[in-house]
Computed example of a mutant assay.
Amino acid sequence: MTASSTPRPAHYWLMKSEPDECSIDDALAAPGATVPWTGLRNYQARNFMRDAMQVGDGVLFYHSSCPEPGIAGLARVASTTRPDPTQFDPASPYYDPKSPPDAPRWLLLDVQAVRKTRLMPLAELRERPELADMRVLQKGSRLSITPVDAAHWDRIVALLDGGG
């Protein structure tokens, strides 16, 4: 994703997914290695998705709510936003009866898995002083989507690729 023949993404993101709902393996196995990022129910994360995320942006695919949370792969934003249909489905755990179809509250976009990486656990991220100001490492940070600055992205990709 950082090859010289590929344009550098405008932005970078860390996106959390529970691996029992959608893991990096699930994403890679999906048609076109692309999955809709459904179930987002936080206004700040929704606003990142709606206002700042662009097709082609880099994504650190992060497994959360599991025995060992951490970065499990690299992905990219593959579509613009559209209404998340789970908000209208009473059978969905993400159903929101206060979100009318003519003015939906919740959005999704597609994420395309690029590759699975070794797991970079949260503990390893915390051990790296150069990553200390990443939002995911801030006390109380529970957002499922957070921006990642280019220096952090480059450092993490280098570490995932075996560079020290």
Rank of each mutant, 00 (worst) to 15 (best):
D89I: 00
M49I: 07
D89L: 01
G70H: 06
L108E: 13
A27G: 07
V55D: 04
T38W: 09
Q54S: 11
F88E: 08
A52E: 15
D110I: 03
V114A: 07
Y62S: 02
S92L: 05
V59K: 01
A45K: 02
D57N: 13
R118K: 15
D57E: 11
S92T: 01
G56H: 07
T38C: 13
S64G: 05
W37N: 01
S79P: 14
E124A: 15
W37G: 00
D102V: 10
P121S: 12
F48P: 00
D51L: 11
P31M: 01
Y94K: 04
H63R: 08
L40W: 00
V55K: 12
P101R: 11
L107F: 11
P121F: 09
P83L: 04
A33V: 07
M49S: 02
L40H: 00
A29D: 14
G58L: 06
V35H: 03
A78N: 09
Y95E: 04
P104Q: 00
A33H: 14
A45Y: 02
A30P: 06
A103R: 13
L119T: 07
D89E: 10
R118Q: 13
F48H: 15
A78P: 10
D96W: 06
F88Y: 14
L60A: 08
S92I: 02
Y43R: 14
A30L: 08
Q54M: 09
P93E: 12
V59W: 00
W106Y: 08
A78D: 11
S79R: 04
A45N: 02
Y62M: 02
P97T: 10
T38S: 14
P90K: 14
G58K: 01
G70C: 05
C66M: 13
M53Q: 03
R41T: 07
L109R: 05
W106V: 06
A91H: 11
A30D: 03
R115G: 12
A29G: 13
L122S: 03
D84S: 04
D102H: 15
A52N: 14
N47T: 10
P69C: 12
A30I: 09
S79T: 12
G56C: 07
P85L: 04
V77S: 08
N47H: 13
K98R: 14
Y43H: 14
R76M: 07
L122P: 00
F48C: 04
L28D: 03
P121G: 08
S92F: 05
P31V: 05
R50S: 08
A72Q: 07
K116G: 10
